[in-house]
């Protein structure tokens, strides 16, 4: 079986935001979700660069929605995780969980 791709911290945050948003994961929504959950407002440039890079690596895929008048007649670009992207995220989160085990970091001991 192929080794899952390694992910950076921001990549994991973006992927988790995409998962949380489900079918509505596009640029503005992803940025808002990250701000809401982490309190950090990512720069638009950093977000689009990360999304493009992850698409090049085959971690996410994207497609275009219909054009809407609120967006000046421009379409939304939606994102979703690919199989390998999902595997990479699970692997990265598993690694965090393993590192947390036995530590009293979040107020209660992690069994």
């Amino acid at each position: 079986m192929a080794k899952p791709l390694s992910l950076g911290e921001f990549e994991q945050i973006v992927l988790l935001a995409i998962l949380r948003l489900g079918d509505n994961a596009y640029g503005v929504a992803i940025r808002s979700e990250i701000t809401l959950c982490t309190g950090r407002q990512p720069a638009p440039g950093a977000l689009y660069t990360t999304l493009d890079r992850m698409q090049e690596k085959g971690i996410v895929r994207s497609w275009f929605g219909d054009a809407t008048p609120q967006r000046g007649g421009r379409p939304k670009r939606f994102f979703a995780l690919t199989k390998s992207g999902h595997a990479a995220l699970v692997s990265a989160q598993q690694a965090y969980q393993n590192m947390l085990r036995g530590l009293d970091l979040l107020g209660e001991p992690n069994a």
């Binding site: 596009y26 640029g27 421009r74 939304k76 670009r77």
Partner: peptide, 14 residues
């Protein structure tokens, strides 16, 4: 072209 349109749409929305 498609990505540029989508990004511009995002910026207008925001």
């Amino acid at each position: 072209q498609e990505r540029a349109a989508a990004i511009t749409g995002d910026l207008i929305e925001q």
